[in-house]
């Protein structure tokens, strides 16, 4: 039976179905991760907003947190400085000087929560409360005209936002350039 299982797994692999094949060899190394350990470490927020934590924050509180924690690098209104420009640029992506910001370029609002919580502020990441992160997300989205300045965001409302550049991305078509290996009388 075990042999059959291995043979079946090998057949699945050869059919290119490796992702669904069950494990062939177990070394018995390591220990099980507990649910509490996973919950403590897993801070991934996908585009559906799965795993967004409880809590909420509004634009007015976001402005206060931004001015205290973010404006020294990103400017008073998110206009940029040492840190990235966070506001504006909508309608510039196809121009000679595109301006890529949260408002003009980011496809998913949920990524704001994920990124601010894991990496910002640069000098003290993972120090903000979930309410503060919701509030900052609301403030940045309001500066970009995506939510009104009266908005309060939580897991459900953040995930429901459709960003202006939601459909701005395409798959990788490379190789997109097929130059020839010219050896003589080539175009310099």
């Amino acid at each position: 039976m075990a042999t059959l299982k291995v043979a079946f797994a090998a057949a699945m692999l050869s059919l290119g179905m490796s992702a669904t094949a069950s494990a062939q060899t177990h070394y018995g190394i390591g220990r099980p991760a507990t649910a509490a350990e996973i919950a403590g470490w897993n801070i991934d927020i996908n585009r559906e907003g799965t795993n967004l934590p409880p809590g909420s924050g509004n634009v007015a509180h976001g402005r206060e947190v931004f001015e205290a924690q973010c404006s020294s690098c990103h400017g008073n209104k998110g206009e940029g400085g040492i840190g990235d420009k966070l506001v504006g640029g909508q309608g510039t992506l196809a121009s000679a000087k595109p301006i890529k910001t949260v408002g003009s370029y980011w496809p998913y609002a949920t990524t704001l929560f994920d990124y601010i919580r894991r990496a910002m502020p640069l000098n003290a990441p993972q120090s903000l409360s979930n309410d503060d992160v919701y509030a900052l997300s609301a403030y940045l989205l309001s500066l970009n005209g995506i939510v009104p300045d009266t908005a309060t965001l939580d897991a459900k409302s953040l995930a429901a936002i459709k960003m202006p550049n939601r459909d701005g991305f395409v798959a990788d078509p490379r190789p997109d350039v097929k130059d020839k290996r010219c050896m003589k009388d080539c175009k310099p």
Binding site: D44, I45, N46, R47, K100, V102, Y105, W106, P107, Y108, T110, T111, D114, Y115, A119, F169
Partner: peptide
């Protein structure tokens, strides 16, 4: 997972 996480580094 079944989907990319669409992190800041792979979007913006």
């Amino acid at each position: 997972t079944d989907e990319p996480v669409y992190s800041r580094e792979e979007t913006s």
